[in-house]
Design a protein around this nucleic acid. Structure first.
Length: 426
RNA sequence: GUCCCCAUCGUCUAGUCCGGUCCAGGACAUCAGAUUUUCAUUCUGAGAACACCGGUUCAAAUCCGGUUGGGGACGCCA
């Protein structure tokens, strides 16, 4: 029975790299019908906070990564660690140094383990110093409580970042001294920023929460992370979590560090947004609007606008500035668009003619609007673009956006005419 | 400095285990063209990589060694 764990330290937000570690552990467990467990590494009581833990758990759920048993907390198990350390002192494998317990490293040995991703890894114990088990303040050292807890939880496979690879020989020595069986290890390379340096804020964010806030969908974030270091073996890019569960195997992971590419994430997010039903997008967009402290429009109107814009936004947050003209008379205006399309006297004349014609329209539908526009163009010997561009700027302030006639229909006759009149005076 | 991990287009990767089907395939990005009222979408096309040097072999992206480069670890942090 496969048992894996994710062991966050509640001293900050959920890092995107940690999220990836959690994802691969989760996939491994689900693929093999095993258990995915949580262990809270809160041994540093001064830096650990409940709010961080809550945020981490919220983010894991948001990503779709559920866990199977109640999480265990290291802060509640100090006596267990101490008892084990005492035992090692009694058997002569560790010694005291003041209040601290130190593990004696036997020199001249080669520790080898078969890593699920890297293959055989060997380290000579001459390169390892004696290890602290329990610190002078009574709290356990990371490597020690990690081993005790993994054994306690019957963890069979430890999948973690490459930064732990040098901890592994030390931990193996602990398993050995404690008479415990080592689990299997798999060390996955870290995610780097585009420039090869450690992933940081300037690469687009390090916290899962930041991506959530910017309007990335959990499906796309997980899908993107999945493809960082792992590939289905064919050309597919869009892979759902449930599909990944079926085909995932840790052995297919690459041992190479990958650079985080925000461009590809954005593309993928756009794909997921465009594929979603408007009814699914509606509550998500409303959340974005609420978070931006803006007034939430009525559902039916918002849904119509989402329909028009979901194929052209890459993140949910882009929706707001792109569609502000639908919901308020205060919206962003592109000055160069005004300059080019509204300033010329000819444009003003065209706008007046167009406005006059649509005013008499009994049904303000995009079909009728388009017909009216084309008829006018033909009669006056104009290109339709000569009507369309000025009109777009006049009613939206923008030079790009959804189809003009659909836009006009959603905006409504009254607003359209009002803005067309106003533009003539501009 | 010592130890460990790694090396295919700008980026993510397929191929590497079991050498020939690879003058290296896909995706993102870029550029060009088509469609469209703009943008986006869609479609077509282009450029773009086996880090380097040696070895093994009839044959190497694939195996071996070295060099260079990148990353990580050397905490009474986790």
């Amino acid at each position: 029975m496969v048992r894996v764990r994710f062991a966050p330290s509640p001293t900050g937000y959920l890092h995107i790299g940690s999220a990836r570690t959690a994802l691969f552990n989760w996939l491994y467990a689900r693929h093999y019908g095993g258990k995915f467990l949580l262990r809270i590494e809160d041994t540093d009581k001064t830096r650990s906070e409940k709010k961080y833990l809550d945020e981490i758990l919220t983010d894991l759920r948001w990503l779709g990564l559920d866990w199977d048993e109640e999480p265990i907390y290291q802060s509640e198990r100090f006596d267990v660690y101490r008892a084990s350390a005492e035992e090692l002192v009694r058997s002569g494998k560790a010694y005291r140094e003041g209040e601290a317990y130190i593990f004696r490293i036997e020199k001249g040995r080669t520790i080898t383990f078969d890593d699920m991703i890297h293959g055989k890894v060997s380290v000579n114990t001459d390169d390892i110093k004696d290890q602290v088990l329990i610190k002078s303040d009574g709290s356990p050292a990371y490597n020690f409580c990690c081993v005790i807890d993994d054994a306690f939880l019957n963890i069979t496979h430890i999948i973690r970042g490459d930064d732990h690879i040098s901890n592994t020989p030390k931990q193996i020595l602990f398993y050995e001294a404690l008479g415990l069986q080592s689990p299997q290890f798999g060390h996955m390379p870290l995610i780097m920023g585009q420039d090869g340096a450690k992933l940081s804020k300037r690469h687009g964010g390090v916290a899962v929460e930041e991506y959530k806030r910017q309007g990335f969908l959990p499906e796309s974030l997980v899908n993107y992370l999945l493809l960082l270091g792992w590939s289905p073996g064919d050309d597919r890019q869009i892979i759902s979590l449930s599909e990944a569960v079926k085909i995932f195997d840790i052995k297919d992971m690459r041992g190479v560090q990958a650079k985080f590419d925000l461009q590809k994430l954005r593309w993928m997010n756009g794909e997921y947004i465009a594929a979603k039903k408007t009814s699914e997008l509606l509550p998500l967009i409303k959340k974005q609007i609420a978070d931006a402290a803006k007034e939430i429009p009525p559902d039916d109107k918002l849904a119509k606008v989402i329909d028009l814009y979901k194929v052209r936004i890459k993140t949910l947050s882009e929706f707001i500035p792109m569609t502000d003209h639908f919901f308020s008379d205060v919206y962003t205006v592109e000055e160069k668009g005004v300059e080019k399309y509204l300033k010329p006297a000819e444009s003003k004349m065209i706008l007046r003619q167009f406005a006059d014609r649509i005013e008499s329209l009994s049904e303000f539908s995009h079909e009728n609007l388009e017909k009216t526009c084309r008829t006018l163009a033909e009669e006056k010997g104009l290109k339709t673009a000569q009507i369309i561009h000025p009109t777009r700027v006049a009613i939206s302030g923008k030079t790009t956006g959804a189809g003009l006639f659909e836009m006009m229909e959603v905006l409504g006759k009254e607003k359209v005419l009002e803005r067309l009149r106003m533009a003539q005076g501009a």
